[in-house]
């Protein structure tokens, strides 16, 4: 049997912009500082609390520490989530703008999220004759 909440109040005013994770962050595309697509945002990492531990009154609210991306297709279909060490972290401190897409203030070349593309470029594409320079 579902219980009813108390009568709804007006939410308190906050100084900054409000973001709902599902509406404004998750599954959005992420572009680097040059507008190059990096990845999509699969999950968020928060600074706490740990599961099963009571939260003391007055505890500091968790913050977003990183955007997470990784191999989530299988777990979205079959349930669960990949182990956290398989997820690639992009620090929140690198995020410059939240809009229709999220923009980073750094180049994607420096991020772990693009290691597959870098590996393919260096190990496969670059070894194809003519693959290591611009077309003439």
């Amino acid at each position: 049997m579902r219980k009813q909440p108390p009568p709804l109040r007006k939410p308190p005013e906050v100084a900054g912009r409000l973001l709902d994770a599902q509406l404004h962050l998750l599954d959005r595309q992420l572009l680097d500082v040059d507008g190059v697509p990096v990845t999509t945002i699969d999950d968020l990492e928060l600074s706490g609390p740990e599961h099963d531990e009571p939260i003391p009154e007055g505890a500091e609210a968790p913050r977003i520490t990183a955007l997470l991306t990784g191999p989530v297709l299988g777990t979205r279909i079959f349930g669960g989530r990949p182990p956290s060490n398989r997820l690639i972290r992009i620090p929140w401190s690198d995020v410059a703008e939240v809009g229709t897409v999220l923009r980073l203030g750094v180049k994607g070349e420096s991020l772990d999220a693009l290691w597959v593309e870098r590996w393919l470029r260096d190990r496969v594409i670059g070894r194809i004759p003519g693959g290591s320079h611009d077309p003439e």
Binding site: V14, G16, L19, D20, A21, Q22, R63, I64
Partner: peptide, 8 residues
């Protein structure tokens, strides 16, 4: 959903 505020 989880609601965040950019006021940290």
């Amino acid at each position: 959903d989880a609601r965040f505020a950019l006021d940290g």
